[in-house]
Design a protein around this nucleic acid. Structure first.
Lengths: 188, 188, 188, 188
DNA sequence: AATGAATGAGCGTTCATTCAT
DNA sequence: CATGAATGAACGCTCATTCAT
């Protein structure tokens, strides 16, 4: 199987899944947009659900990479931790911003679909691990317990901010989260 | 139109929409479950989307009522504010807990569907207003600005907690949010 | 049964059947437009088909009456015969002109529906009888055979004119039919 | 797309549309009769209306071809012009004769449906052009104006004959139209 | 005589997936 | 490795009609 074709499919599906949602995106739309044949798609992905998994992977890799680049431009210490939330401001301002794919995808699958639900959970766990590293790198003076505590807070604020900025179509939830975090960091 | 039938339809649709999502719940499932004829449903609701609006209304009314009852049992002051988040613990433990209907529904409608999206936004604005009242009732000593600030924080924490407890199938995000809030309240 | 209600129903149904066709006009549209209850309609007309029969009757009575009035204003003789076709000019120019209800209704019922088809045929036979009277009144000098022959011609031209002016959305078929008829009358 | 399938669909749909009318013919009936799956039909025709257009095209092509063959067997001159109407006699006697598809279809579509209505009008204009060629080929001695006049008459008589033979379930309207035409031709 | 809520059957259309080539 | 025609099941919705009041 040519990598190119597979990547093209994932790229197209990702765009459509993120824009219109998983259930509202039809296989026909994906093959039309990516210019490949239907049977070709099915030779790369056995079912639509496989495509969904690839989409979740692709989006998360991209995010971790981008957010890592973003915060690396900031000075070590509190600034870099705050930068995690500040990253959401340009992210929100992107024309195609449509919230968090994980949160949105969970909303679209039945409660019984363990495969997708645990995939999403894993991705979020991985993201929390990333935040954990950010915290330990930039707050080495804190105890493990304190670090874990701060990580959880950072995580909740991040998730609340991205979800609510999406619903309200406004960046105030991001700004508020940043304020909460800064306040917190000042007092540790 | 008999109220009974209409209410039965909303009740059934709400259960199914909340469990399996809007797009995955077919009209056929709703009528089979509620034991009415298809045309009967359509004499009460012009489209499936009307049913969605009724669902969002019903769920939100119920929530506001329940959360209000819950916090009223707590002593005035910080306790009652914290109780807003504590409410999420039994809520999460309900067998049919499946996250926030608003957040999940936003994930299922096209970006262009202003009708639903603004409905959801309105519901969230109304919820924030409720929180605002809780804050002003229980922290009258704070300035307006400080009250608004606290409300936003409470809101973000609530939303982050409900979303993440759903994704992780665990109450730790709720507990964490409660901790963040308590910490905050101690320092004001 | 009150006559008023029945007449109101027929009036409304006629307007809708003629404008949008029998099959495209729903019972719901008729009751909404006429402001009566559904069961009331069904107490006056056992089925939608009964309404169709009443519609065909009403339209034909009205037509015969109007066309009779129209030609009576013309001088006896050839002029009055030609007037039958000239009647179609103002008829065509009415805003709601939509062709011949009989011809259009035949198009909407299955071949097997003898009830409606023979009703329509009867109406047309009755119309031809009307034309026959016009011919014998205004061309008494012709033999019976010649009168019958002229009647048939008049009939074909009338039907061709109304149908084609409808299709072409133009009065040229009427004008042409008038020319053919005049030409004919000049030579008898 | 395989031609065979498409042709089979058109063939079946044409038969059913012509026999029972467009609105009374359901997609389900078409697929059952043609033995294909519903989605197969919709891969060949985007909507039922597209199928209607194909039906109108197919019927008209067939007609023009058949009528052309028919009149070609007659001697040039008046005979060949009269043959246009004589063609209707065997046409009427076919077991499945059910009038003119154009006239019947106009009766079934809403007044606002410009797409279908102009299609039908175009078909009739094309048919009149065919008659115009017949006239100019067989009456070259007439002036252009006289040819146009004769064409219009031939057209009206043809349309009146096919419509009325359908309504009356009798060939007398055809015979009458032939007589009118012959009479006319004798006197030019 | 009149109501309006309720119905079963059917509508046109789209879905994710398969299979012969 | 890639194709595109074909599929069965399901979609949201509307129909003419009936029935309890």
């Amino acid at each position: 199987m040519k990598r190119d074709t597979r990547d093209k499919i994932i790229e197209t599906a990702s765009e459509l899944f993120y824009r219109n949602g998983y259930n509202l995106t039809g296989i026909n739309e994906i093959i039309k947009e990516s210019g490949i044949a239907k049977a070709t798609l099915y030779s790369h992905f056995q079912t639509k659900e496989e495509l969904l998994l690839a989409y979740l992977d692709a989006k998360d890799s991209e995010l971790l990479s981008k957010i890592d680049s973003f915060i690396s431009t900031k000075p070590r210490g509190n600034d870099r931790i705050v930068a995690v939330l500040q990253f959401l401001l340009p992210f929100f301002n992107q024309e195609n911003f449509n919230g968090c794919w994980c949160i949105r995808t969970v909303a679209e699958v039945p409660r019984e679909n363990d495969r997708i639900r645990s995939k999403i959970k894993d991705n979020k766990v991985q993201f929390r691990k990333f935040l954990s590293d950010v915290v330990s790198d930039n707050k080495p003076e804190l105890s493990n317990q304190q670090q874990g505590y701060l990580t959880d807070q950072l995580y909740i604020l991040y998730e609340g901010a991205i979800t609510e900025s999406h619903i309200h179509a406004s960046d105030w939830p991001i700004v508020t989260s940043i304020d909460i975090l800064k306040d917190k960091l000042d007092r540790i």
